[in-house]
Every structure is written in structure tokens, then in C-alpha cells.
């Protein structure tokens, strides 16, 4: 936020120099108390011995990390990664044209409202709505039977496909909003210039539009992938016997097996893996691109507003 130009201007005002730290104080305090402190507790617990009936005993041990080396965990992790990558990819493929259309439309406010309408209804109720639609006795099967397309109802629910469908549905707005916000700031005359210079329609989009909205795509990816990676309720409610994900494993270790150190260790590994992944991704894209138009077009000091802030 603090650009060199601002800093010079601030100097002239004297007493209000560098108020950023003060402005950020509530957020810093909030994150310290409700994010860093719990994280520290998780780190500490992961190195302790599980208590007889839940909780921990203050004997240091690496047992929890030894337990993670078990192939069982590798299997859940692999399943979680597959679901998260699949669902995120589908989400982005749907969100990108949607964001493009919204950015070019003249009724942006209306379209933005439409995208946000699902947030007005409780997340769990929306999952139950999917159960009512896709169930063996659900609306879709009723329709298929009424049309004579099937005799026996088709089992849409309680498998990995259903989990991915509902995850895509849930996180689609989180991908559309940053993409819309970034594409909205894209200078569409660049596309015309590309066409004038001989690029095909597709070529112009792939070689001019996409590199310029790379930051928005990255933000959309992170906003979708990270929550899906920790999904709990969706696999629990529409998943089948094989749709177990890391979020469910953590919950079960905490509440059913009552092995708090193991639950802590798994959470910590997820946090580490996501953090490292995000850092690598940012570095590969150039750290400044998160949320803003990327590439040479913006490198000339036009300093666009970050799309993330705009989307919120």
C-alpha cells in the first residue's frame, strides 16, 4: 500500500507521518490473538503425548509425526489433493469466462448481486438443498423418471463426483469476484491492438488477456484451492464411504480418537504445505502480481488498485 510517492507526501504533513502502523494495529492485535496464538498452541500440542481421555500430557514426543508417516495418511492426503486440484480447475474454467462477461457487461452491479446471492443463505442449508436435488428420491431423479429417461434412479450423491460438484458450486463466487475485479481493469483496447497486429481471436485472449490477468487467476486459485483443501462439511454430507478428506481426518482424530497431538500435527503439515505452495507460486509469478494485473503492461508505474481489495 505504501508507495514511495505517498511516503514523500507524508513527510510534508509532519505529525501524521507513517500512520500505517497505527491503522494496522487492530488487525495486528486481532491476528496475533486469534491466529498466531492458536497456531503456537497447535505447534506445541503436536509435540506432546496424547492425554488418556483427550487433551495432552506435557511429555515431549515425536509420536504424532511418526504416525503421519503411515500410508493411511498418504492415501487421505492424495485423495484430498486430487479433489482439491480437480475442483479448483473446474471452478477456474467456469469462473474465467464468467468474470470476463461481467467485466464487459453494462449491468455489472446486477451481475455482482447475482453472484453474491448464494451468500445470503446458510452454507449448510445450501448443501442440504443439493441433497434434495441429487438424491435417489430427489428432484433430478424424479424428473428423469417422469421423462422416461431412466427406470431406476441414478445415484448422483455420495461419491467423489458429488463432493467435487458441491465444492465447485460453493467456491465459485470466490473465484469469480477476483477474476472479475482484475479483468475489469484490463484495457480491452489491447485486444483490438492484438487483432490489428494479426493475432487470431483466441490468440489475442491467450497471449494478451490471460498474461495481464494472471494475478487475478492466482488470487482466484488461492481463494478456491486453500479452503477446498481443508474441506470438512461437504465430504461429510455428500461424500460416500470413500470421500474421506484431511479435514474429516483432523476432526475425527480430535473428537473421536481423542488424539489431539496427531490432529495438531496433521493440521500443521497442511498449513506448512499450503504456505510453501503459496510462496512458491507467488515467487514463480513475481511477488507483486497477487491480485493485480501482471506483466509488462502494468510495470510502467500505472500502479493499479489491487484486485483483492476491490473484490472484497
Amino acid at each position: 500500500m505504501n508507495r514511495p510517492g505517498d511516503r514523500a507526501g507524508g513527510g510534508a504533513l509532519g505529525s501524521v507521518r507513517e500512520p500505517g502502523g497505527l491503522y494496522a494495529a487492530p488487525a495486528t492485535l486481532w491476528l496475533t490473538v486469534f491466529f498466531l496464538a492458536p497456531l503456537a498452541i497447535i505447534v506445541a500440542y503436536s509435540f506432546l503425548t496424547p492425554g488418556a481421555r483427550g487433551g495432552v500430557e506435557w511429555t515431549p514426543t515425536l509420536d504424532a509425526y511418526r504416525a503421519i508417516a503411515n500410508p493411511t495418511f498418504a492415501k487421505v492426503t492424495l485423495n484430498t489433493i486430487l479433489v482439491a486440484i480437480g475442483a479448483t480447475a473446474v471452478t477456474l474454467v467456469i469462473a474465467l469466462p464468467c468474470g470476463y462477461y461481467m467485466a464487459r457487461s453494462e449491468r455489472q452491479t446486477l451481475l455482482l448481486m447475482l453472484v453474491m446471492i448464494p451468500f445470503w443463505t446458510n452454507f449448510l442449508i445450501r448443501i442440504y438443498a443439493w441433497i434434495a436435488i441429487l438424491g435417489n428420491e430427489g428432484f433430478l431423479n424424479d424428473l428423469l423418471r417422469a421423462l422416461g429417461l431412466v427406470d431406476e434412479s441414478v445415484r448422483f450423491l455420495y461419491n467423489r463426483g458429488a463432493v467435487m460438484l458441491v465444492l465447485v458450486y460453493t467456491y465459485l463466487p470466490y473465484a469469480i469476484l477476483p477474476l472479475y475485479s482484475t479483468i475489469d481493469k484490463f484495457d480491452f483496447s489491447l485486444l483490438e491492438a492484438a487483432r490489428d497486429l494479426g493475432a487470431s481471436k483466441l490468440g489475442a485472449i491467450v497471449r494478451v488477456l490471460l498474461p495481464n490477468v494472471k494475478g487475478g487467476i492466482l488470487t482466484a486459485f488461492l481463494f478456491t484451492f486453500i479452503p477446498i483443501f481443508g474441506a470438512y462439511a461437504v465430504p461429510l454430507l455428500v461424500g460416500g464411504t470413500e470421500s474421506y478428506m484431511l479435514g474429516n481426518l483432523i476432526a475425527d482424530e480430535l473428537t473421536k480418537s481423542r488424539d489431539w497431538p496427531l490432529a495438531s500435527a496433521i493440521s500443521l503439515v497442511i498449513t506448512l504445505v499450503t504456505t510453501i505452495g503459496v510462496l512458491l507460486l507467488l515467487r514463480a509469478n513475481g511477488a507483486s502480481t497477487l491480485g493485480g494485473p501482471a506483466g509488462e503492461a502494468s510495470a510502467d508505474g500505472a500502479a493499479p488498485e489491487p484486485a483483492v481489495g476491490g473484490a472484497r
Partner: peptide, 14 residues
């Protein structure tokens, strides 16, 4: 309890 937990985890995870 640990034996039960392990058996149950194997069932749930596959």
C-alpha cells in the same frame, strides 16, 4: 482404544 482407533481409521480411509 488405540487398536480400535487404528482399525476404524483403516476402514474409514480405505
Amino acid at each position: 482404544l488405540k487398536l480400535y482407533n487404528d482399525a476404524w481409521r483403516r476402514i474409514r480411509v480405505g
